[in-house]
């Protein structure tokens, strides 16, 4: 399937996922934006002031928003769990479009996703749990590993290896969960059999594709954010360009995510 056909088949689902991620992101972003605006809004550099060397303004924002940040931080795990679980609908719709033999309308795809919500929720919860457990185990070993380093270079190597291993582990978990979701949607499987099917069907090739998509997404995301930082926000035009670049960075991530889902759908069907 070429890019045009892929976009034509899944564009609406892609848009839904983008919209969902953006709206979900706005929930914690809105109060933070207000607090930030109160502190750095009148400085000539705007938000760029936060990144100035030495971090005086960054710490000033933290100091003046301690109470608000504490409330946000307390709400963060609940928000994270909620948006991860609620994401089964837009993500399921996109997978349904990608896994279907015929072109599926967004409405049909959403309907299918809603119908399969219970097993999709179970898969999503299992994925979340696996990520939390894996992160805890990984953090424990990572903390020990850095102490073992015998030189600065060695320490850097350990940190790089730890980051790479963590990223690869996350990709592997994600591929299995996505493929299981695709099995649920394409073959009406329940969560348990779908996960076992997914484990059977995943290949090294698919894993490599998922990793490549993640790397592409992260690099594009970082690049767009950096460009937005360079552009600045002193004038209206700069602010508009910056906003566009940041939305583009999110778009890059959503596209990367969609590529991963495509790989998973191929594996599953």
């Amino acid at each position: 399937m070429n890019a045009r056909a892929w976009l034509s088949r899944s564009g609406s689902g892609l848009g839904l996922l983008f919209g969902y991620a953006w709206l979900a992101g706005l929930v914690p972003a809105l109060p933070l934006a207000l607090w930030l605006g109160g502190v750095v809004g009148q400085w000539p550099g705007g938000e760029r002031t936060l990144a100035e060397p030495g971090g005086v303004m960054l710490l000033e924002v933290l100091r003046s928003s301690t109470r608000e940040l504490a409330v946000t931080a307390r709400a963060w795990p609940a928000w994270l769990a909620l948006v991860s679980l609620a994401a089964i609908v837009p993500q399921g719709a996109l997978i349904a479009q990608l896994a279907s033999r015929e072109r599926a309308s967004l409405l049909d795809a959403v309907a299918r996703s809603v119908r399969c919500a219970p097993p999709l929720l179970a898969v999503s919860a299992a994925h979340l749990l696996a990520r939390v457990v894996a992160a805890a185990v990984f953090a424990f070993f990572a903390a020990s590993a850095t102490v073992m380093a015998r030189s600065r270079l060695g320490e850097l190597a350990v940190v790089a290896a730890v980051a790479a291993l963590g990223g690869l582990g996350a990709c592997a978990l994600r591929l299995v969960a996505d493929a299981a979701a695709a099995r649920v949607l394409a073959a009406d499987r329940r969560a348990g059999p779908a996960l076992l099917d997914a484990l059977d069907r995943c290949s090294w090739r698919a894993f490599a594709q998922v990793v490549a998509a993640a790397a592409l997404g992260v690099v594009t995301w970082a690049l767009a954010l950096y460009l937005a930082h360079v552009v600045g926000s002193e004038t209206g035009a700069q602010a508009l360009v910056g906003a566009a670049l940041r939305l583009l960075s999110l778009g890059a991530l959503v596209v990367a995510r969609a590529i991963q889902l495509t790989v998973a759908a191929r594996v599953a069907v």
């Binding site: 991620a21 992101g25 948006v83 089964i88 954010l225």
Partner: peptide, 14 residues
């Protein structure tokens, strides 16, 4: 909003 929203959306992507 785009600055923070795009960052927070990272976590909203399942």
């Amino acid at each position: 909003l785009t600055h923070l929203g795009a960052t927070a959306a990272l976590f909203a992507l399942p």
